[in-house]
Nucleic acid binder design. Structure first.
Length: 777
DNA sequence: TGGTAAGTAACCAAG
DNA sequence: TTACTTACCA
């Protein structure tokens, strides 16, 4: 037997070798579960001679799927690309594209995101003559999502409602919302799962074909699956029962969006003869960090008891930092990172800044910008949710699926063509009266009463769209997008504005064109529909590139599954983390979920953790005074180093209470000193820090609009674009800071080229091509 | 119809 | 603080 499996510990091996029948792997944070999964796949293929085609692995994000695929490829080599690695959503879309017509939908359906859902829902509520104050979109959408995640149908809600007035109305809304989706030939995110389950239930032959194909199924992050996902898995696995799920009940943090922790807690009940393997050895963090995490999570009542342990070194204490306000906190973070990088103790990519809410990123961003620290914010607004991108995509959506009313309404008057709200309302009323789609009724404008005057304008619009549809066949996607941009005058309108904002939007549109081109080049049979689908399913975290030298900022939720040498955990205040709602809630489970979230946050850190909190903080325009988080108090003081940090900072503050740079404590926080430099991640990043500062200078100056530091990418399908270099060994090049030099070497890395240059004055430097922006002379 | 000013509700986490 | 809706006028 090949000995790659002997590098695994006993428990890990047990999990790998148990291939037949249900298996639950309770994998603590950092216990090497991804390694187990990839080795397990390899073992199935190599030792059990299972066809790669018969294996499915479901991950939480596209990024995780891509990484898993990469790692399996590395171990197995030939044939591994046939393993179906995907997220729940992507897997379901793929199935539905093929078979959804069997449950009465059309196979070219559109996927609606939250914004689209809201618009649709708004119309539904209005048409039912219900008070929008009583039925707020967000709340209703949440309810509908709950229903779908539990596979509750519209009919069942109506039945449940009985004489409950509010629930009865809710059931009407739900019902009409579903009908509206269907009419628009659209599915929302939750539908993707629910409809697949419906399909399986209604068409046993379809289910069986997938059961036959997917004989071995693995599910990662099982603690965060919801009822619909459970049903999906259960159906698929019911024939061969070769289901392996991996999860950690302590890391269940998505209850708010329907995750059902009982899926993991009841696994042994749901699947007979299930084998359970616990992975409790942590390979990621220092003992200090792990002890802190264990202490915190032990305060939770409803959990499977287990204690992570580690052979790693004790490591440094956790730094605890109290700041006056969010800006001071941010400045501490920025200056600490800057100092450690400047002194060569770490690379920017060794740092992650985690927080509870996205709103906290603003202050941090500001301070990082101030110090020219390259960063990337994950979360907040996705590239594909930007207005201009959604506008362009709306045109593409209509070309693809003209029944998509939401898309039509979005751009019917963008750019301005004099078709106002009243016109649209009349057209919509007409459409509703005759059972048309909005676009269909627009094609009949001349027959819509009251729209005589607007008819010419509307006709021009439909001609435009019809023209695009005709041209679509004879054009590449890229050409089509350009055609849309030109014919609509979208970019021209922005260009005329000539504001920073408008220019930022144009840049984003250029970026979209790049994406389209990349997609077209990297796909065998590119189609508009498939492109739109991929775009709909990318998540923010998919764009994270660990190999690039920048600091990442994200919520603790986004950080799930990731690890970083150094972690800053900011805003550890009661009211913020744990959040106000969870403190006030009658349900103690809410606080426990927050604690699990805190556990996730702490266990992201490998070498060093810094926790900070602010005495006062601006929330929605008013100042809040919070006390230190109860979770921080659960960490034993012996693991924490707070005194020196606090004192020096306090001293720094007395002099300069404003937000601008306090030099007071600069140089005082030297955590992560020599302690870890020699370790695995320290030595490999030997390029000088200054290059990055320089390379990012241009970036940092740009406005936050169309944030240049948030370069979006696609999920698995796309290789991260390498810098486009036009120079080679021996060429003379110019660098903005170091001047002219000669290229000594160009090394092709997985994500970027590493270029070695001998500068005439500055000496020899090694840099990443995409950052160095070298110009050939 | 479209632009502006004033008013108000909202942020907790995400595919 | 900000993003979005409502009210009013050119």
């Amino acid at each position: 037997m090949n000995n790659i499996y002997e590098t695994l510990n006993d428990m890990q091996q047990l999990a790998v070798y148990h291939t037949e029948g249900p298996l639950l792997i309770l994998a603590g944070a950092g216990s090497g579960k991804t390694r187990v999964l990839t080795h397990r796949i390899a073992y199935l293929i190599e030792e059990k001679h299972v066809q790669p085609y018969n294996i499915m692995a479901i991950t939480f994000t596209n990024k995780a799927a891509g990484e898993m695929r990469e790692r399996v490829n590395k171990i197995v080599g030939f044939g591994a690309e046939q393993v179906w690695v995907s997220t729940f959503h992507s897997a379901c879309v793929r199935i539905l594209r093929r078979y959804i017509d069997r449950i009465g939908y059309s196979n070219d359906f559109t996927i609606y995101d939250t914004e689209d859902q809201k618009k649709l829902l708004k119309d539904v509520i209005k048409n039912l003559n219900l008070d929008p104050k009583m039925y707020k979109e967000n709340a209703v959408l949440g309810k509908i999502s709950d229903f779908k995640n539990k596979l509750v149908t519209t009919g069942e809600v109506a039945q449940m409602a009985q004489s409950d007035f509010k629930l009865l109305n809710l059931s009407k809304i739900y019902n009409n919302y579903q009908e509206a989706l269907k009419k628009n030939n659209a599915l929302d995110f939750d539908d993707l799962i629910m409809k697949t389950v419906h399909l399986f239930r209604k068409c046993p032959e379809v289910l069986e074909s997938y059961q036959e194909r997917l004989k071995y199924i693995m599910v990662d992050e099982y603690q965060d699956t919801n009822g619909a996902q459970f049903a999906f898995i259960k159906l698929l696995a019911s024939k061969y029962q070769n289901l392996c799920v991996v999860g950690d009940d302590d890391q269940s943090i998505y209850k708010f969006r329907g995750a059902d922790i009982s899926n993991i807690l009841q696994f042994e009940k749901n699947f007979n003869n299930a084998r359970v393997v616990k992975l409790e050895q942590n390979y990621r963090s220092t003992k200090t960090i792990l002890d802190a995490a264990n202490e915190v999570i032990h305060n939770n009542k409803g959990r499977k008891d287990k204690t992570l342990w580690s052979d790693n070194e004790q490591g440094e204490k956790i730094d605890l930092y109290q700041a006056e306000d969010a800006y001071a906190e941010a400045d501490m973070v920025a200056s600490t990172i800057k100092e450690n990088v400047d002194f060569g103790r770490a690379d920017y990519s060794d740092y992650a800044i985690l927080y509870r809410t996205n709103a906290q990123s603003r202050a941090l961003e500001e301070k990082l910008l101030l110090r020219n620290i390259p960063y990337k914010i994950i979360g907040g607004q996705n590239f594909y949710q930007r207005k201009e991108i959604k506008d362009v995509l709306a045109y593409l959506r209509i070309i693809c699926n003209a029944t998509d009313d939401i898309a039509v309404e979005r751009i019917i008057n963008v750019p301005k063509r004099g078709i106002g709200a009243t016109t649209v309302t009349k057209a919509k009323d007409f459409a509703r009266a005759y059972g048309f789609n909005l676009y269909e009724s627009l094609l009949e404008v001349e027959n819509i009463p009251g729209l005589e005057r607007a008819a010419t304008k509307v006709r021009k619009f439909t001609d435009l769209i019809e023209n695009f549809k005709d041209q679509q066949q004879s054009m590449s996607l890229k050409e089509l997008v350009n055609e849309v941009l030109n014919e609509t005058g979208y970019v021209a309108e922005l260009a005329a504005e000539n504001t920073d904002e408008a220019n930022g939007r144009i840049e984003n549109i250029d970026e979209l064109i790049t994406k389209v081109t990349e997609y077209e080049e990297n796909t065998d049979n590119p189609s508009l529909a498939e492109f739109l689908e991929e775009v709909a399913l990318v998540s923010e975290i998919d764009n994270l590139d660990e190999d690039s030298s920048y600091v990442v900022l994200m919520t603790v939720h986004s950080a799930k599954g990731l690890e970083f040498p150094n972690v800053f955990l900011c805003g550890m205040e009661d009211g913020l983390f744990p959040g106000y709602m969870s403190i006030m809630s009658d349900d103690p489970e809410e606080l426990e979920e927050e604690r699990r979230l805190c556990y996730v946050a702490i266990t992201r850190a490998m070498k060093h953790l810094t926790i900070s909190y602010a005495k006062r903080r601006m929330v929605r325009g008013e100042t809040q005074y919070n006390i230190i988080s109860r979770f921080v108090k659960e960490i034993p003081m012996s693991l924490v180093n707070s005194k020196n940090v606090k004192d020096r900072v306090a001293a720094g503050f007395e002099k300069k209470p404003s937000f601008s740079g306090f030099g007071g404590y600069e140089g005082s926080l030297n955590h992560g000193g020599s302690g870890y430099l020699g370790s695995s991640y320290g030595g490999s990043r030997n390029f000088a820090a200054n290059e990055h500062k320089n390379a990012y200078r241009t970036m940092a100056k740009k406005p936050a609009y169309g944030n240049p530091s948030t370069k979006p990418g696609f999920g698995k399908q796309f290789v991260v674009t390498k810098a486009d270099i036009d120079y080679g060994v021996g060429d003379r090049v110019h660098h903005t800071k170091f001047g002219d030099g000669t290229v000594l070497g160009v090394e092709d890395g997985p994500r970027d080229y590493q270029v070695t240059v001998e500068f005439d004055t500055a000496g020899q430097k090694v840099m990443m091509a995409s950052f160095a922006k070298l110009k050939k002379l």
